[in-house]
Design a protein around this nucleic acid. Sequence first.
DNA 1: CGGAAACCTCACGGGGCGTCAGATTAGTCT
DNA 2: AGACTAATCTGACGCCCCGTGAGGTTTCCG
Lengths: 211, 211
Amino acid sequence: MSQTLAIDGRPLGRRAQLTRRRLLDATYELLQTHGIRDVRVVEVARKVGTSPATFYQYFRDVDEAVLVLADEAAEEVEPVARLLDEPWNGKGGLESARDLVDRYFRYWDEHRALMRVRNLAADEGDQRFRDVRNRTLGQVTDRIAEAVAENQRAGRVPPEITPYSAAAAMVSMLERMASYHFDLEPRGVTRRELVETTARILHHTITGRKT
Amino acid sequence: MSQTLAIDGRPLGRRAQLTRRRLLDATYELLQTHGIRDVRVVEVARKVGTSPATFYQYFRDVDEAVLVLADEAAEEVEPVARLLDEPWNGKGGLESARDLVDRYFRYWDEHRALMRVRNLAADEGDQRFRDVRNRTLGQVTDRIAEAVAENQRAGRVPPEITPYSAAAAMVSMLERMASYHFDLEPRGVTRRELVETTARILHHTITGRKT
DNA sequence: CGGAAACCTCACGGGGCGTCAGATTAGTCT
DNA sequence: AGACTAATCTGACGCCCCGTGAGGTTTCCG
């Protein structure tokens, strides 16, 4: 896509684009198997069959490559977030909630390692990572906040609730459950139960309706 | 505590206990200012005025020191979790919920850096860290699950909800909100609103009562 | 085919890691 | 106090990764 630049500012030719892509892919793969602290530039380079110096032509460090990957993953959230565009009040509301939770879990299952590092870096204060995270979660948060506000106007959600706070709380719950369900399932809860329960909490918080 | 051992298995004398403690404290302090990936054994040692080799007498690596710290922090959760021992159905229920959320946030504010690393390591699959996390969160989760189950028996919580799942969801929400509110507040939500809203969701999920 | 531009790598100084043999300190007994 | 012993600490080293800049190799284009 468009104007990705090398570290020295030059635009990338065809060969360079390819190398960069392979470096990104290798980084992604290593992230699956190693903790972030053990992802070495040398190893990324080795995996691509190139030299470490090449890596530094395209990224200042491993984090910067991860940032690009996180940015790419941000786009895949949109179709999930869209599930919030239909109002959840009616009959199919609960089913939409289930669907959202399930797909959110799957999104995380897909990008688990990436999300982990993105969140760590964001929590540690790195502004670039905060931005990607906000861009990603914002797609969901904003829609939930809007829905809550609407139901609040209709008198179904109590006035003491702040729509944006509620949205943040729901996204927090989703995120952590998505990241966590792996640790939970071996402990005697099924995924189905997790999805069903989470969906119901989500549905009620947004719509204010009893289930 | 009592029988803390050195890496070679020998029990620690008075001098050694002190050195170990100072190393732990230094690790904790460095964690406040550096991302975990930049906490160097050399620097911990320097801070204590000792040599890196000394560090390795007591801990296999930085993570192991962090693990001990996380373990210590686990005990401070108990008084917070106790807020769940009184039933939340009655009049003061909502106030108890606010109290819990507020204190949970404060607990995190206090141990932010530590919690972050604990969660990262646990999510990356390190069993020791999963265990501390479960021991910590379990204190809250188990109590919530129990409360939900009770209210479910009384017919206030729908039968499709799994008490343990709901508890996990609530703890997830709490954890993430606690870790996240820093990033949220500069974006135009007040802490009061966050606490109030989170408390209400928590209260309703546990008791099934309208607020 | 030849030259310029684009891309890649060699080779190196710097620094943290983790170990172990040996030095230093504290404790104990006479 | 002196001297012996166990406990504790550290100097010094080999290893490996980092990140850079000068110089080599490939690609592109006339």
